[in-house]
C-alpha cells in the first residue's frame, strides 16, 4: 500500500469508526495531539483535543446517529500529500412524526505517517443536522 492509499484508508476507517462508535479503532490512528473540529451552533460542536476527548466525541456522535436510526456512508475520498478529503452521506428513514434524514458533509483530515493530526467535520446543511439529529 503506498502512502496515498494508506491515507485514504485512514480517512475511510475514521469515518466508519465515527459512524459505528468505534472509538478504539479511531484511537489507534490518533496522534497524542490530535484535534477534531466540529464548529458552529450544532449539537456536539467544539474543538475536541487529544485521544480521550476525540474518543468521547466519536461515541456521542455515533449515539446521535443511532438514536435516529441514521446511517453514515462514505461516498468519495480524495487523498492529497497532507490532507484527505472524505465525503459522506447521512440518511435515516422517516419515522412516526419525523421526516426522513438526508444530509451530507465532508471530513478534512490531516494525516502524517499514518496518524491523524487534525480533522474538521463540515456539513452541507447544519440546520437540518440540528433539526433532525439534535
Amino acid at each position: 500500500m503506498n502512502a496515498l492509499q494508506s491515507q485514504v484508508e485512514v480517512a475511510r476507517r475514521s469515518l466508519e469508526a465515527l459512524a459505528g462508535a468505534d472509538a478504539a479503532t479511531l484511537s489507534g490512528y490518533l496522534d497524542d495531539a490530535s484535534v477534531f473540529r466540529f464548529r458552529g451552533d450544532v449539537p456536539l460542536a467544539g474543538e475536541h483535543k487529544g485521544p480521550e476527548h476525540v474518543g468521547r466525541f466519536v461515541r456521542d456522535f455515533a449515539a446521535l446517529l443511532s438514536s435516529r436510526g441514521a446511517r453514515l456512508e462514505v461516498a468519495h475520498v480524495v487523498p492529497g500529500p497532507e490532507h484527505v478529503y472524505a465525503r459522506f452521506r447521512v440518511t435515516a428513514p422517516a419515522s412516526p412524526g419525523r421526516a426522513p434524514v438526508e444530509l451530507g458533509g465532508c471530513l478534512m483530515t490531516r494525516v502524517r505517517e499514518g496518524h491523524i493530526l487534525e480533522s474538521s467535520l463540515l456539513l452541507d446543511d447544519a440546520y437540518a443536522f440540528q433539526r433532525d439529529l439534535g
Binding site: 466540529f38 474538521s120 456539513l123 446543511d125 447544519a126
Partner: peptide, 10 residues
C-alpha cells in the same frame, strides 16, 4: 460544485 461551511450559522 458543492460547498461545505464549518460555521454555518455565523
Amino acid at each position: 460544485a458543492h460547498w461545505f461551511v464549518d460555521n454555518q450559522r455565523a
